[in-house]
């Protein structure tokens, strides 16, 4: 375990000590924070096992050529279509999009498609979009999606090619 990881775990343990003490002395603010933590943690615990198993399966089964062809530099606009479809169906939104991005990157996906995918992961998720249009109206949802999708793709193209030109490497998180 490296130093950075150790510091993270010390921080996490301190948080647990803080929460237990909050319960013991009936410190309302601390108890509320713990409840917030649990609310998100439970959601994560439900999603993480299947999501990571699928990422593992993806890693061993999907050929590098397939990803290069569909998400790679030379795949043209098709990679953005895949990015939208993948973003619309990613369960867990942005949280789960990051490990998926990592798996795609190691199979040869291009920066621009990765950035477009992660940015759209919470933007075009189907269940969220349904809730949005029922509370804010269909007009709102249509304009928001109609504007954000092309703009995200254009910005991602520029950012992607900039990162590529500056020889940027993503961290080697296995």
């Amino acid at each position: 375990m490296n130093k950075k990881t150790k510091i993270s775990y010390i921080f996490i343990i301190l948080f647990f000590i803080f929460s237990v003490s909050a319960f013991l002395v009936h410190f309302d603010f601390g108890v509320k924070i713990w409840n917030n933590f649990m609310m998100f943690a439970i959601e994560m615990i439900k999603i993480i096992p299947p999501a990571f198993v699928l990422i593992g399966l993806f890693d061993v089964w999907v050929k590098r050529e397939t990803i290069e062809k569909n998400f790679g530099k030379s795949s043209g606009m098709i990679k953005y279509l895949w990015a939208i479809l993948l973003a619309a169906t990613t369960v867990g939104g942005t949280f789960m999009a990051f490990p998926i991005l990592n798996a795609l990157y190691h199979k040869g996906a291009h920066y621009s498609s990765l950035i477009a995918y992660v940015t759209m992961a919470s933007l075009v998720r189907i269940p969220m979009t349904v809730i949005e249009s029922s509370t804010l109206g269909i007009k709102f949802t249509l304009i928001r999606m109609g504007v954000s999708i092309p703009v995200v793709i254009i910005f991602s193209m520029f950012l992607g090619s900039y990162l590529e030109k500056s020889d940027y490497k993503l961290p080697d998180l296995k």
């Binding site: 775990y9 924070i33 917030n36 933590f37 798996a103």
Partner: peptide, 27 residues
């Protein structure tokens, strides 16, 4: 398939501390 599970576990362990930290910030 067994390798896939190993990959899954390795990737999860690598990101776990950052994930927990993020959850704490969120709370």
């Amino acid at each position: 398939t067994i390798l896939a599970f190993k990959v899954a576990l390795k990737k999860f362990v690598a990101i776990l501390p950052s994930f927990l930290k993020m959850l704490i910030y969120i709370s």
